[in-house]
């Protein structure tokens, strides 16, 4: 699975410095629809910087980003969104005081002659959550009263509703309990099966192996390795993250 087509997203030789610190020193990467790509690396390896250039929050100094065949020097949040790249931030960006369906439509509300079309939003929210196999009992509930897993699911549903084809998840299960983690992992697998691309950043190696089709190891601002998950062991990955070489000394 996932070997078909050309990559939906391709990153070429991205460089980005903050003052004299080089956060990205020419990182390259491809991500396809229908697969889960995990980005791993130690703190300061450049994972967050890379993700932020993909979501358009940061402008790279050089390099290019190719989305669906179109090449860009840099993206803006709007451009990224219009091209189907959607980032779910760690804080989820949900309005805790509003309902499930209001959050899904936040900033993209349906209107009928200027009036909010609540009926249509309620119906479509229900359809969307149903399609994604997300079970929430009461869509009138305010999001602040829901569990971490449900909140994550709503943030993902919103990303997809806003036209996301490539969903970027930053530490999706950080600070979650066992059951919630399991539910979120199931959701991520479902997304890939339904043909969405998923990029996750995770520090949890076991989870990376559980979920991903490919692993991208970052180290000191560069992509050290981009490997099929099936072809490596978790010890290999840990070794690459820590020392920069795999156990048998070879990379890629």
């Amino acid at each position: 699975m996932g070997e078909q087509l050309q990559p939906f997203l391709e990153v070429k030789e991205l460089k980005k410095s903050f003052g004299h610190i080089e956060a990205l020193k020419g990182a390259s990467l491809q991500a396809k629809c229908g697969e889960v790509l995990a980005i791993v690396g130690d703190n300061g390896a450049g994972k967050s910087t890379l993700i932020k250039t993909l979501s358009g929050v940061l402008t790279p100094d050089s390099g290019s980003i190719i989305v669906d065949g179109k090449e860009y020097g840099h993206l803006t949040p709007k451009l990224a969104g219009d091209n189907g790249i959607s980032t779910v931030y760690q804080d989820l960006s949900l309005v805790n005081t509003q309902t499930v369906w209001e959050n899904i439509f936040l900033g993209h509300e349906y209107r009928n002659f200027g009036w909010l079309n609540k009926k249509k939003m309620r119906r479509e929210a229900a359809e969307l959550l149903n399609n994604l196999n997300i079970s929430i009992h009461n869509h009138e509930e305010i999001v602040g009263n829901l569990s971490g897993g449900q909140r994550q699911a709503i943030a993902v549903a919103r990303a997809i509703h806003h036209g996301g084809k490539m969903i970027i998840l930053d530490e999706p299960t950080a600070a979650m309990g066992l059951r919630e983690t399991a539910a979120t992992q199931q959701l991520i697998k479902n997304l890939a099966v339904q043909g969405y691309g998923v990029i996750i950043i995770s520090h949890n190696i076991q989870q990376v192996f559980e979920l991903s089709d490919r692993i991208c190891v970052m180290r000191q601002g560069q992509v050290l390795a981009l490997v099929d998950t099936k072809s490596v062991t978790s010890d290999d990955i840990v070794s690459m993250i820590v020392s920069g070489t795999s156990l048998n000394g070879a990379i890629q």
């Binding site: 949040p77 709007k78 969104g81 931030y89 960006s93 949900l94 309005v95 805790n96 005081t97 509003q98 209001e102 936040l106 900033g107 993209h108 509300e109 209107r111 200027g114 009036w115 909010l116």
Partner: peptide, 23 residues
């Protein structure tokens, strides 16, 4: 019934989330 009313409430709930949604 209007976006203006809904956004008044949303700004109080999480203004940053609303901003990230392009509002």
């Amino acid at each position: 019934r209007t976006l203006w009313g809904k956004y008044s409430l949303a700004i109080g709930g999480n203004a940053e989330a609303l901003r990230r949604s392009g509002v």
